[in-house]
Amino acid sequence: MSDTQSVFSYDLAGVVVGETAISDVQGDSGLLSYRGIDINDLIGVPFLHVAWLVVFGEWPDEQEKSRLKSFMCRHARLTHSEQDLLGQVPRDLHPMLMLQGMIPLLQMPEEDTLGKGLDAEQGLFIAAKISGLIAAHHRLGQNKVILHPIAGKLRHENFLTMFHGKAPSPDQVRMLDAAQILQMEHSFNAGTFAGRVCASTLAPIQSAISASIGTLFGRLHGGADQAALEMAMEIGSPDKADAYVRECLANKVKIMGMGHREYRTVDPRAKILKPMAVELCQDEDSRNLLATLIAVEEACQREFGERGKEIWANVEFYKGAVFHSLGIPSHYFTAMFAMARVYGYIAHFLEFRQENRLIRPRAAYVGKPPVAADQSAA
C-alpha cells in the first residue's frame, strides 16, 4: 500500500467528518444532550416541544406550540389517495420497508405554513405522516379499518389510539413520550450520516429521510431493539440466561443490545429507560421478558468482568420491553424508532443545507495494477 493510502478507516471510527450543534454524545462520561440540554432534563417535557427544540434549536413560543400541535395532528391523518397507495403495499411487508418506500411517494406541501422554511415544513409533514402510516399499516394487516387522529389529543395518545383502536392510559402515553424523546437524536449515527450523504447531493428531504430509514433498518443499528426482545423470547426465562450468554460468547455470537459503539460506560438513555420498563411491565408475560433481559445483562457483566472488561446494555435492550408492554408487535419496534429519530434527521438536513458540501471520500485501490490496453489484450 502506498503512503497516500496508508491512513484510512473502514468504519470511520474516530474520524471527524463534520460539525453539529444538534446533539452532543460524550461516550467516555456517558452523557447525552440535545441543543445543550441534558437528556435527563428533557424527560417529562411535552414530546412535540422537544421535537421543536431539536429541529430548530430553540423552545417554541405559545403560538408555535399551538400551530405545531395542529399541524402534526392534521397531517397524521392519511388522505384518501395515501390510503389507496398504502393499500397496494403487501400486508406482510416489514414496516421499515413500507416507510422507506412510501415516504418518497407522498405529495409534499408547497407552502410554508409554520414560518420555518419549506424544507422544515416538508420534514415535519413527513414526521406527521410516519405515525399515520405505521398505525394504518398495522390496522390493514389485521384487516381492520384505518383510524384517524383526533384534534386536541396528545401526539402519542393519538398514535396509540390509531394503532390499537382504543385509548391508552396516561401512564402508557407518558412512557411512550419518554422512550421516543430518548431516541430522537444521537449525533452522526449511521442513519443520520446516510441522510447527510444523500442531502449533500442536493436531493430533496424525502429522499434523505428515506435513505436514513433504510439505514436504520439494519440489525446493527435500529433493529437491535427487535432482536433483543426476540432473543429474550427465545431464551424463555431468567434462569436460562447464564447458559445462553456462555454459549453466545463461546461461539462468538453478538448479543444484541449489549454494549454501544459510542459509550464506554452506561448508556445514559438506558439508565432512564430501564427503571421505567420495570415500572410499566406489570403483566406476567412482560415481567418475564424484562426479568430475562435483566438476567442476560447481569450474565454478560459477569462473563466480561472475568475477562477484565465492562459491558452495559444500551437503550435498545430495554426499549423493546417497553414497546412490548404497550402492545406493539416486535417487528414494529424499529418503525417506532424511525417515528422518533425522524426529527433528528430533519434537524441534520436543515443544518447541513446551511453550508452544503458534496460528500465524496477517496478509496484506497487494492486491485490489480493498471496495464496498457494492448498488454491486457495480449
Rank of each mutant, 00 (worst) to 15 (best):
S169C: 13
E121K: 04
G214S: 02
G101H: 05
P60A: 06
R74V: 09
Q183S: 11
E234Y: 14
M102I: 15
S212Y: 06
M72W: 02
A364I: 04
L68K: 01
E284T: 11
P170I: 00
A178E: 02
R362H: 12
S286L: 09
M96F: 01
I150P: 00
S200Q: 07
N356D: 09
E230S: 02
R77N: 08
A313M: 06
A277V: 10
R357E: 09
S210I: 06
G367A: 01
M162G: 02
R287E: 11
A373S: 10
V253K: 15
P149C: 01
K65M: 10
N189E: 12
H94L: 11
Q142A: 08
Q301Y: 00
A167Q: 14
R362Y: 12
G57F: 01
E58C: 01
G222C: 07
L85N: 08
L86A: 02
E185K: 05
V322S: 07
F159C: 00
D3T: 14
L97N: 14
K240W: 04
D61Q: 01
V16D: 14
T113I: 10
A127F: 03
N143P: 01
C198N: 00
D61A: 06
R139K: 06
P329H: 00
L229D: 07
D285T: 13
Q282T: 15
K129Y: 06
G214A: 06
Y34K: 04
G141S: 08
A21L: 10
L99C: 04
H260M: 03
K271E: 15
Q301D: 08
A378T: 12
D61C: 00
V245M: 05
E303F: 05
R74K: 13
I255P: 10
Q183P: 02
E58D: 12
I150M: 12
F349R: 02
A243L: 11
Y365D: 04
D3A: 13
M72C: 04
S131D: 11
R264Q: 15
V342D: 01
A211I: 05
I181T: 11
L105T: 02
L133E: 09
D61H: 03
P60C: 06
I235M: 01
Y244W: 05
W59C: 03
A128T: 06
L133Y: 08
S169K: 15
